[in-house]
């Protein structure tokens, strides 16, 4: 465990806490894409299949449980909670995310570390996580004004993967066995998707103005 990866995991956790805060504090999920949240729940469920069969560390197990529980709780809130679900932008959140699931699964069948059940699902979860943010970014562009907490949520989500890239660079130079090309390349693509968001987030921070993404 190196500082970049720990910082990345903490930033990821912060992004989830910010989202939960937004939903709990405003009792609203406006500006949040349910499709992205469903994709994240699928990412965690397919990546942490070894939750009960393998044990790496207390930290690893606890974080996996937190990510699975929080992502399912957010999906539940947006689908079932009587007050929150009313503020869901159903007619704006129209990204056909089933294509993202299909594309990731097909790619996982072609590109994997070992042709084994868990490995295929692990690769699937890596590819899916890279593109899972797309419905959310599209929704932000469509919904025009973005409330602060939603902006911070997406920012921390992008920052977590950027820190993971530093972690992979660090491990590349220090850990001779390190060979996680699937995670590295996919992580680079994932972080690149945030590039323009980071730019507009920085501009809104510098001008102390509302975050606005061009349509």
């Amino acid at each position: 465990m190196n500082i970049f990866r720990f910082a990345g995991d903490m930033t990821h956790l912060i992004s989830i806490l910010v989202l939960l805060l937004k939903i709990y504090a405003t009792k609203s999920c406006s500006g949040i894409s349910l499709k992205t949240q469903e994709l994240y729940a699928l990412v965690f469920l397919t990546r942490y299949l070894d939750l009960f069969t393998g044990f790496i560390s207390i930290y690893n197990t606890v974080m996996k449980l937190i990510f699975i529980a929080s992502s399912l709780a957010i999906v539940w809130c947006m689908r079932v909670h009587p007050i929150v679900r009313r503020s869901y932008d159903k007619d704006l959140d129209t990204f056909r995310h089933y294509f993202l699931v299909a594309a990731s699964f097909i790619l996982a069948l072609l590109l994997y570390e070992k042709f084994a059940f868990k490995e295929i699902f692990w690769a699937f979860s890596i590819y899916l996580e890279a593109i899972a943010i797309l419905p959310q970014l599209v929704l932000l562009q469509r919904s025009g004004n973005v409330d602060n907490l939603t902006g911070h949520y997406v920012f921390f989500l992008g920052a977590y993967r950027a820190l993971y890239i530093l972690n992979w660079i660090y491990r590349y130079f220090t850990d001779i066995h390190f060979s996680r090309w699937i995670a590295c390349v996919s992580g680079l693509v994932q972080t690149a998707l945030y590039a323009d968001f980071f730019y507009y987030y920085y501009i809104s921070w510098r001008n102390n103005a509302k975050l606005k993404l061009p349509a």
Partner: peptide
Amino acid sequence: KADSEAKDEL
């Protein structure tokens, strides 16, 4: 190869 077995990253 040890690394690819134990997926130690989240």
